[in-house]
Simulated assay, not measured.
Amino acid sequence: MEIDEQHNPALAKVAEMVGDAKFAMLTTKEKDGTLRSRPMATMQLDSEGNLWFFTSLSSPKIEEAQPDQQVNLSYARTDKYDYLSISGAAELVHDKEKMQTLWSPWLKPWFPKGLDDPDLALLKVSIIAVEYWDAPDSATARAYGLVKALVTGDTDALGEHRKLDVNEE
């Protein structure tokens, strides 16, 4: 996965967390309003705050993301108790050069025809808003934060929780 330096300073923490997690759960809305999630391998977070994924044109997520193009991406690092929720706008992209840049041989089981597959496309998600929970790195610091919160009610030592509107930062 490729993580570019972010032009928007608000996305620096997001870039770090996405780079650590690598896989997202992409949530779309079906026609009847039902929410549906599926795992996606993040291929890139570009410098403009766009996340890139490979997809099949025949996948139901393509139709589900089309009407209003609003999607959610959830990332989790359960070993560190770090969580990231990204609201974004999805766009289907047919750019052979970009696909070549992002292609990895480990994608072959899902796309056996490789870059020549007519069903292959890119899904670009432009980040609109973010919410994250970032716990302390060490188990000791997390335990201290929990004890402090239980005793004093002060949850600051449990980690950082922020909501970011990317367009306002």
Rank of each mutant, 00 (worst) to 15 (best):
E2T: 11
G19I: 10
M40R: 07
D156V: 14
Y75K: 02
G114M: 01
V71H: 08
L107Y: 08
A129F: 00
T28P: 13
D137G: 00
K148P: 02
A157Y: 07
L123I: 07
Y132I: 00
S87R: 14
I86E: 06
L115Q: 04
V147F: 06
A139Q: 03
A15W: 07
L146P: 00
V14D: 02
R36S: 14
S74I: 06
A12W: 02
I62Q: 09
E64Q: 15
A41F: 11
I62Y: 04
A135Q: 00
G33V: 13
K124T: 09
G33D: 11
D20Y: 07
V18Y: 04
E16W: 04
K96N: 07
L115K: 03
V71A: 09
N50H: 14
I3E: 07
P60R: 06
S37Q: 12
R38E: 13
S74D: 07
M1V: 10
M17E: 05
E30H: 15
D46H: 14
A65E: 07
E97W: 01
G19Q: 09
K124E: 11
L26M: 15
E160R: 14
A10S: 03
L45W: 11
V151A: 12
H94M: 07
G33R: 14
S126E: 08
R36P: 09
V93I: 15
A65D: 01
A135R: 00
L115F: 06
E91D: 09
G159C: 05
L84V: 04
L45G: 12
D119I: 04
K13Y: 00
G114Y: 02
E168V: 10
E5I: 10
L158Y: 04
H7K: 15
V125Q: 02
T152H: 04
H161M: 09
V147N: 01
R142M: 05
V18K: 06
L51G: 06
D79G: 08
N167K: 15
L164S: 07
K108T: 06
D134R: 01
L146W: 02
V14M: 05
G19T: 08
G49F: 13
H94I: 06
S47C: 12
E97K: 13
E97V: 13
L35D: 13
L150T: 09
M99N: 05
D68M: 08
T155R: 15
D165A: 13
S59T: 08
E169P: 04
L146M: 05
L164A: 06
D165Q: 12
S126Q: 11
F54P: 08
S47K: 15
E48F: 10
Y81E: 12
Q6L: 08
A15T: 10
V147P: 00
E169C: 02
L146C: 00
L51E: 10
V71N: 08
L57G: 15
L51F: 10
W52I: 11
K148F: 01
L120I: 06
S126C: 01
H94W: 00
S138H: 01
L123G: 03
